[in-house]
Design a protein around this nucleic acid. Structure first.
Length: 424
DNA sequence: TCTGGGGTCCTAGGACCC
DNA sequence: TCTGGGGTCCTAGGACCC
């Protein structure tokens, strides 16, 4: 058996934990740059506010119902996530952290327990330790556990815990689940399935296997097997190293000058390098992109992108930044209003794998490499102790392009001097 | 005025190898 | 009339996830 534990309206719930007055009010959380609504409390959902709606489009509604609106505060959500996961890790032999607000638990060996009762214990414990409400779904495969979790959330009579064990329970759940609500079936595949009159999860489970394999490929075949109770997706206990790392932002206002783009790209490049070092990885491929707004109909959209391989794999902020700046120069077109930029590193290799690999043509000699490595170590150490941004490269600057974050709550759990902001 | 960010996997097709 | 068989690697594009 697998359990899927999923936090309810996670970002909105995080804001509520530290501001109990919000318990009686609808709450929404915005995406970066205060653009779209990406999390809603139950009350906000009841008002008809849709996921992904631009904030400005529902501003009157938000105001009318006195909705509490927050900028996204990832320092807070990330830390709260860690606390939830640590609590869950103590409640099961194995845990797979699937996303910031979800984890699979291995329930093998729990057969002699009352699983529903155990699910309630999980809910109570997470709520007590962190203040975050969660729902629990349990079933013989991950895909079925996802379905169980969805029912636990949607049907009040489950009281937050749904266990699908017997054939009858599973079949009833599949009949009440539409194909587009199955984990791994998105908009396109749903459309295809509709044309074949496959509308419920039960229909998909019963569909001819050869047809599924041909049109939904290997991924769809796996989903079908999982719906039938054959487990194909094992627990993944260690997170594999990332294959690519991207840092990108929409700008708070239009940016036209190369200088401002250079500052943005430098900031993103340096952030990618920090993420790489945290992963103990090196990159060998760098992509830089800049883009105009997709919503501005007055001019044609420009998406400038360039990818280049680096002379040797690196996680050095300075080396990555230099390469990124050169690439930016080659895609910059004067006279355009840029709304977004980003840096992506790929071709990632583990640090140990190439500690001794030197480039045949590299300009820097090994002593210079060693010196730069030490600089990065010192920078990381200072930033870990005194907060990120305590020291940074001079080229990094977010004065002019900084995204909007006008309704940011405090970093209640990661910043000492923010603790006093707690209001009861 | 105003519309997010960060990932993964799979497939098909082309280039290339012997 | 007629031109093998079996691979790998890379990339672009599409689909999906949170």
């Amino acid at each position: 058996m697998f359990a899927l534990v999923d936090c309810n309206n996670f970002y909105a719930s995080c804001e509520r934990v530290f501001n109990p007055a919000l318990r009686l009010r609808p709450v929404v959380v915005l995406s970066n740059n205060d653009g779209c609504i990406i999390a809603r409390s139950e009350e906000a959902k009841a008002l008809g506010i849709q996921m992904g709606t631009p904030e400005f489009k529902c501003r009157p509604l938000l105001k009318q119902h006195k909705v509490a609106v927050f900028s996204s505060n990832f320092a807070l959500y990330g830390d709260m996530s860690t606390r939830v996961m640590m609590t869950l890790a103590a409640l099961a032999p194995e845990i797979e952290v699937y996303s910031i607000d979800e984890a699979f638990l291995d329930m093998t060996g729990f057969a002699r327990f009352d699983l529903t009762e155990y699910g309630r214990l999980i809910r109570r414990t997470v709520k007590q330790h962190t203040g975050i409400p969660v729902c629990v779904g349990m079933a013989p495969t991950k895909t079925l556990a996802k379905i169980a979790n969805r029912l636990a959330k949607k049907k009040p009579h489950y009281q937050g815990v749904c266990v699908l064990k017997s054939h009858a329970e599973i079949h009833a759940a599949l009949e009440h689940t539409r194909v587009e609500d199955i984990w791994g079936i998105g908009r396109q595949l749903s459309k295809l399935l509709q044309t074949k009159q496959i509308e419920s999860a039960a229909d998909l489970a019963a569909a001819p296997a050869a047809w599924v394999r041909k049109h939904l490929h290997i991924v769809g075949a796996r989903i079908q097997a999982e719906l039938q109770g054959r487990s194909c997706l094992p627990m993944e206990l260690v997170r594999p190293a990332k294959q690519s790392i991207c840092t990108s932002r929409s700008f708070g206002r239009n940016v036209t000058s190369l200088e401002e783009l250079q500052q943005a790209v430098a900031t993103f490049a340096a952030k990618c390098a920090v993420k790489l070092r945290r992963e103990n990885s090196l990159t060998s491929l760098l992509t830089v992109f800049i883009a105009t707004s997709p919503f501005d109909n007055s001019c044609e959209r420009y998406w400038g992108t360039r990818t280049a391989s680096l002379p040797s794999p690196t996680s050095d902020s300075i080396a990555i930044l230099r390469a990124a700046q050169t690439m930016l120069d080659s895609i910059f077109l004067a006279g355009k209003s840029y709304k977004k930029a980003g840096v992506l590193v790929s071709g990632i290799v583990p640090k140990e794998a190439c500690s001794t690999t030197l480039s045949l043509f590299a300009k820097e000699t090994p002593p210079a490499n060693e010196r730069d490595k030490k600089i990065m170590q010192v920078m990381d150490a200072i930033n870990n102790r005194y907060g990120s941004g305590a020291v940074r490269l001079a080229a990094e600057n977010s004065e002019s392009w900084k995204p909007h974050q006008e309704r940011l709550s405090a970093r209640y759990t990661t910043q000492w001097d923010n603790i006093i902001e707690v209001k009861v």
